[in-house]
């Protein structure tokens, strides 16, 4: 994670910014996957400063999901494609905001597009690690299953104009 994406910041790194009024600050909300399973809690918000909006939810995931991920790697190759080998202590992952739904009444984040298995196999990072663009691409490809997402789309704000970052631009993901 050496290629630091300068447009991506944790909200706490920008003391001059806050979640805009009329929008939910989802930090602390539970994250429920497509299988209705709680996979973790939103720990931080990653924002694109230029677009002035949140583009990823940084989720601290449950240990149970991590264990599921380990089990996945122990399966024979014939039973599925192995994804990322996560380091010990890596218990965070990011979810593109456009792939999440906010349930303000119950204060939880749901996603209809990512199931437990996909989460378990996603590449994770340790809290405090710098998130680079390569990691963003990996996550996006993993969650969308679209491995054609090219690095050439990495030019600043345009990358976050994808449907996965703003559900308002599409009807269905």
């Amino acid at each position: 994670m050496s290629d630091i994406k300068k447009n991506l910041y944790y909200l706490y790194e920008l003391p001059d910014y806050k979640v805009a009024s009329d929008y939910s600050d989802v930090r602390g909300w539970e994250v429920i996957d497509a299988d209705s399973r709680t996979i973790g809690v939103v720990d931080h918000l990653l924002v694109n400063k230029e677009a002035e909006r949140v583009v990823y939810l940084d989720v601290e995931i449950d240990n149970s999901l991590i264990e599921d991920g380990h089990n996945t790697f122990q399966l024979p190759v014939s039973e599925g494609v192995h994804q990322f080998i996560n380091k010990e202590g890596a218990n965070h992952l990011i979810i593109p905001i456009g792939m999440a739904n906010l349930d303000g009444n119950n204060k939880r984040v749901t996603t209809n597009h990512i199931n437990s298995s996909t989460f378990a196999q996603a590449q994770r990072f340790k809290k405090g690690d710098i998130i680079d663009f390569g990691y963003e691409l990996n996550v996006l490809r993993h969650f969308t299953g679209d491995h054609t997402v090219e690095e050439s789309t990495s030019s600043g704000k345009q990358f976050y104009d994808r449907k996965e970052f703003d559900i308002s631009k599409i009807r269905n993901i």
Partner: peptide
Amino acid sequence: MTVIKIEKRK
């Protein structure tokens, strides 16, 4: 629509 805008603090 899942959007969380941020704004500059006054």
